[in-house]
Amino acid sequence: MGASESKPTTRTFVPEVPVQFSQDLIEVLEDIPQSDFTRLQDNALRLESSVASELEKIKSEAHAILSESWSAAVSVPPAGPESLASPALLSDIETFKKHLVERQQLLENAPRKARRVAMRRRGRS
């Protein structure tokens, strides 16, 4: 459908002159004890050890941060009554006090009968 091929092609280049390796090079290559498999294993071990050391470093840094945070949290004094005095809470308390004073004035100004009724209602609730 398109201009490009659907399957990749593998190109093999063939030299015009036959390639010849010197005997010294062949002997050196044959004397190398490592194979591809052992090289892969060595690389994997190096990678594994570097990852383990980085993880250990991160773990120790996290432990230090956690211990600093813990000591800072423990050193904070517990919340006392002063910390509960928010402006909203103080205004609610003042409003409640005003309502109590108003009710007290109503009871003082009411006739005796109304006081008796109010006293009975308090006893029921």
Rank of each mutant, 00 (worst) to 15 (best):
A85R: 14
L84V: 15
H99Q: 10
L29D: 05
D42G: 09
L47N: 11
R46Y: 04
L107A: 01
E82A: 15
S67Q: 14
S69T: 02
I58Y: 02
R115C: 06
D31Y: 04
A88Q: 03
T12W: 05
E30F: 01
L66C: 11
P15Q: 06
F96P: 00
S50D: 11
S83P: 00
V74G: 07
P81V: 09
A88D: 03
H99E: 11
P77S: 12
A79Q: 12
V28P: 00
A72V: 06
V28N: 06
I32Y: 05
K113R: 13
E54Q: 05
A114M: 09
L106T: 12
T95L: 10
E61Y: 07
P87R: 13
D42I: 04
V101I: 07
S75W: 02
Q41M: 14
F96R: 02
V17Q: 00
V19R: 04
L66I: 04
T12Q: 04
P33E: 06
G80M: 09
F96A: 03
P77L: 06
P87M: 08
R11G: 08
A44I: 05
I32P: 00
S86T: 13
W70A: 10
A64E: 03
L84I: 15
I93D: 01
V76F: 08
A64D: 04
I93P: 00
L66P: 01
E56W: 05
W70T: 02
E82R: 15
E48A: 12
T9P: 00
E108S: 09
H63M: 13
T9D: 01
P33N: 05
L45M: 09
A73G: 07
L106I: 08
D31W: 07
P77I: 01
A64T: 01
N43W: 01
L45K: 09
T10R: 04
N43V: 02
P8W: 01
N109P: 11
A110G: 05
D92G: 12
S91M: 12
V14T: 13
W70Q: 06
Q23S: 11
D24Q: 14
V14I: 15
A79C: 10
S49V: 10
E61Q: 11
P33Q: 08
T12A: 07
E68C: 02
